[in-house]
């Protein structure tokens, strides 16, 4: 890095990986969120919650540089967001792979390394070693040579974590990665993300409609609803008073055996994002 002296002091006093100020996202006259000021530091784990259509996925698209803010600014490591930036790793929600897809586990991981480059996949020993290391890191060695179409949802999501880690990103963006996984695999995949955060100080932005599988890992919650938002620690945001004022209608947060259950939130129990098949 050749940072000019002018910039260096600024970097030292802000340790922020992602900073949003006065950010607004609107489609036409429908405002998804506005006045969003957010500073996320290294190694911070943020859950993004909210009903369907509240702009959770759009929030990720903004961070990915695929969607421009209607107002305000976004800086990622002091720079404007850039499409395809290697600073960001993206883990999608689980979708089954078409039968007979001519790719194996290791091929999916490799796409994270060089899938964006033009030309033929001419492999060298170095690429192969990198893929092996990534597979090792998520415990996916055992099924790395198996066809993708024959893997379970949990196995595929592990590979997708490995794929997202290929560029050694500073930030992991997770778009409902636990959706349609069974409880055991939800735990495994969430733990992989958390482990990466611990070992590499990676900032995690985790979009989910269900906070419980990651409740113990979350530092702060960004709750989007009704064109407004709440941002703070789970203890601050996930309370009956805070969510009631956010929704503008009575909402109750119940603690049940260490789980959080939100009762009465309009649209929050709509699991419409799940694939029907």
């Amino acid at each position: 890095m050749t940072a000019t002296p002018l910039i260096t002091p600024r970097r030292s006093n802000t340790d922020n990986v992602i900073s949003l100020s006065g950010a607004e996202l609107a489609f036409g006259d429908r405002i998804l969120w506005q006045g969003l000021d957010l500073e996320l530091g290294r190694g911070e784990f943020v859950a993004v919650l909210g009903p369907n259509g509240s702009g959770k996925t759009s929030f990720l698209r903004v961070l990915l540089g695929q969607q421009h803010l209607s107002a305000g600014t976004l800086l990622i490591q002091e720079r404007p967001p850039r499409r395809g930036s290697a600073l960001l790793g993206y883990i999608p929600q689980h979708r089954a792979v078409a039968p007979q897809t001519p790719l194996r586990g290791r091929d999916l991981v490799r796409l994270g390394l060089d899938g964006h480059r033009w030309g033929l996949p001419v492999g060298d020993r170095r690429t192969r070693r990198q893929v092996d290391e990534l597979l090792e890191a998520v415990g996916a060695k055992a099924f790395s040579d198996r066809p993708l179409a024959l893997l379970s949802g949990g196995e595929l999501q592990r590979l997708r974590v490995a794929q997202a880690l290929a560029t050694d990103p500073a930030i992991l963006l997770c778009d409902e990665p636990l959706l349609s996984l069974d409880l055991h695999h939800q735990k495994v995949v969430a733990e992989l993300v958390n482990q990466r955060r611990r070992t590499h100080d990676t900032t995690v932005v985790f979009v989910t409609h269900e906070i419980n599988p990651i409740l113990e890992m979350v530092d702060r919650v960004l709750y989007l609803a009704e064109g407004r938002f709440r941002f703070g620690t789970p203890a601050e945001v996930m309370t009956s008073a805070s969510l009631s004022s956010l929704y503008g209608s009575p909402v109750e947060v119940v603690h049940l055996n260490g789980r959080l259950v939100v009762v009465g939130a309009p649209g929050s129990h709509d699991h419409g994002g799940e694939p029907s098949a």
């Binding site: 960001l88 993206y90 999608p92 792979v97 790719l103 796409l111 964006h116 996949p121 997708r160």
Partner: peptide, 15 residues
């Protein structure tokens, strides 16, 4: 190949 398998992830990676 990337875009055929997983268009969203490919787009996120800059494809």
């Amino acid at each position: 190949v990337f875009a055929s398998l997983d268009p969203e992830v490919a787009a996120a990676r800059g494809v």
